[in-house]
Computed example of a mutant assay.
Amino acid sequence: MTKPIRWGVLGASNFALRKMVPAIHLAHRHQFVALGTRSPAKAASFAGLAPGLRVHGDYDALLADPDVDAVYIPLPHTLHIEWAIKALRAGKHVLVEKPVAMHADEIAPLIAARDETGLICAEAYMIVHHPQWQRVRDLLADGAVGTLRHVEGVFTYNNADDPGNIRNSAATGGGALPDIGVYSYGSTRWVTGMEPEEITHVEIDWEDGCDVLARVSARFPAFTAHFVNSMRLLPEQFVVFHGDTGLIRMTCPFNAGTFDIARIEVHGPKAARVERWAEPNQYVLQVDAFGAAVRGEQAFPWSLEDARGTQAMIDAVYAKAGGRPAG
């Protein structure tokens, strides 16, 4: 049997503790073996998930650990490129949290490092691994809505009562678009295979240099789109793909199993049906897919080039808004 892939995590983030480390534990032929953090208290929480966990007091020490094969990077957004390149140079495969970078042109050096080392490096974009998104992609390709004419997407939550959250800090790459706009924009690009031709309208509410409510309209080659992303609204998420003969509504597109059960409605001229997925954990599926890519069994379905395309769309939205204000 092939040896398990041994994972190290750079930074003791709460998200890594709640989602990714348990996913590594549940995935097939993977082990969480090392953590890089200067906080003994945070390390203790992780140690409970992995007896014998090696805790390194700095990130460079973890990258020098010969018993780590792959590194997961949940650091603040502004640190992703730097540490992903360092991890590749240290001979580690890399799964880096979204967004990979704060600007699309920053991703080119990481792509170059990936290609030079021959290692796997990808963005942790978990939704493309979930069968509901694969199903919607197939349905659209098969003409389930006829000609797609419009996409409507909403993804919101409210963290106004958590001012210390890195998502509320411009210095650490905060904002609704870097945090959740990546899902609205990237998912639309992925299932349709199309890139936006123009950002036609943007309205953004700012707080201390962070976009906390973004209303964005765009024109794609074959359809229009409108997205609402916010860190100041009641939690909600849905995506609608509206065609001339049909409609697909996703009622829990992004946080499947947490916000609600994964569910799609497929409407036609005379009938509708509902499909549900209760079981799949998209984080476990992501780790399994990463392992398959590392072992050369299959390609990873979301590349750094895919991530760069989404970041380019976010960049275009900020440009249409006149740029990000100073925090």
Rank of each mutant, 00 (worst) to 15 (best):
T245V: 07
T245G: 09
T245A: 07
G246R: 02
G246A: 02
G246V: 02
G246W: 01
G246Y: 00
L247Q: 10
L247W: 08
L247S: 09
L247H: 11
I248P: 00
I248W: 02
I248L: 07
I248M: 04
I248Q: 05
R249Q: 13
R249F: 11
R249V: 11
R249C: 10
R249G: 13
M250R: 14
M250G: 12
M250D: 15
T251Y: 08
T251F: 07
T251N: 09
T251K: 14
C252I: 01
P253E: 01
P253N: 03
P253K: 01
P253W: 01
F254N: 02
F254K: 00
F254D: 02
N255Q: 14
N255L: 15
N255D: 15
N255S: 09
N255E: 15
A256S: 09
A256K: 06
A256T: 08
A256I: 11
A256E: 10
G257M: 04
T258H: 12
T258F: 14
T258A: 10
F259C: 02
F259W: 07
F259G: 00
F259D: 01
F259T: 00
D260V: 03
D260P: 11
D260G: 05
D260W: 08
I261G: 09
I261V: 10
A262F: 06
A262W: 04
A262G: 09
A262D: 03
A262I: 03
A262C: 06
R263I: 05
R263D: 06
R263F: 05
I264G: 02
I264Y: 02
I264E: 01
E265H: 11
E265Q: 14
E265M: 12
E265D: 10
V266H: 04
V266E: 07
V266A: 07
V266S: 05
H267L: 14
H267C: 15
H267T: 12
H267R: 08
G268E: 03
G268N: 00
G268L: 04
G268M: 05
G268C: 01
G268S: 05
G268A: 06
G268H: 03
P269H: 10
P269R: 14
K270E: 12
K270G: 13
K270L: 11
A271W: 11
A271F: 08
A271D: 13
A271G: 06
A272T: 13
A272M: 09
A272I: 15
A272W: 15
A272F: 10
R273Q: 08
R273I: 07
R273E: 09
R273C: 11
V274A: 10
V274P: 03
V274W: 15
V274G: 06
V274S: 10
E275S: 04
E275N: 03
E275K: 04
E275M: 07
E275G: 04
R276W: 08
R276Q: 12
R276G: 13
R276H: 15
R276I: 15
R276E: 12
W277I: 00
W277R: 05
A278Q: 11
A278S: 12
A278N: 14
E279Y: 09
P280N: 05
P280T: 01
P280C: 04
N281H: 07
N281W: 05
N281A: 03
N281T: 06
N281V: 06
Q282M: 08
Q282I: 03
Q282L: 05
Q282F: 04
Q282K: 12
